[in-house]
Amino acid sequence: MEYSLELKNVGKKYENFELKNVSMKLPKGMIMGFIGENGAGKTTTIKAILNIITSYEGEIKIFGLDNRKEEAKVKEDIGVVLDDMFFPEIITPNDINDIMKGVFQNWDSKMYNDYLKEFDLLPNKQLKTFSKGMRKKLEIATALSHHPKLLILDEPTSGLDPVARAEVIEIFQSFIENDECSILLSSHITKDLEHIADYITFINHGEIILSETTNELLEKYGVVKCTEEQFQKIEKKDFIKYRKTKYEYEVLVEDKKKFKAKYKVDVVDKVTLDDFMVIMIKGEE
């Protein structure tokens, strides 16, 4: 299998936070959803991939090339949306077109202007007059308009209304119709990821907890909702974590079928990414 992105034991120490041995692989033609709570290390990982932070340990390969040694080459083929707004607010979309013509060899003004029309963005208005959602759309249009092979998107749909979000997700899906293209997509809107991500990578306190296909995660894992008495009967090795709520116990199990067979229960709920994240972060072992 060929990979667009490979991280091997990537680490970075800060005073109050540490990214520990982060490893993941994004195959070509796939979308990877990157999830975790705020401050878990998603943005730090993305910044390491993009060399926005440089003094990290480990190895990062993009299209099979070292991202530090072959930086200029690989970045020609990467489209980026960062978490924070990043264009000077006193420039216009037309200025961005002019700027990017001088940045990317493959910049496609026609494609960019088509996206501006599709997103209803006025080309000669200063960005300070744009809403947060409009700026996000502009950033997405910019990320897509130099025919990249890899999109690295940190919260690209935050601030978008449901209609715009659906529109953007459709664009991402058609982007990966080309088997050479892939997306690493960090988002808190896990519903979107359940629909479009082929892989899910979950990071918590700077460590990768899980990285597997979305289907496997959603089909295999399950949540058992039970009383305290029922919970006491479950062996520790048969669940990953549990969470005690006001009315019941929510128990995350790795294999729904096995659990059903062993404990003779009829209902083990299908896990959602939200359930998974909440129990993994807030739950106890």
């Binding site: 910044k47 060399n51 707004m85 990043f86 000077p88």
Partner: peptide
Amino acid sequence: SYDSFNNWNAYSLSLPNG
């Protein structure tokens, strides 16, 4: 000041030879 205020610096580093 604009580069710093608008987070352009981080974005510029994601561009080729940024």
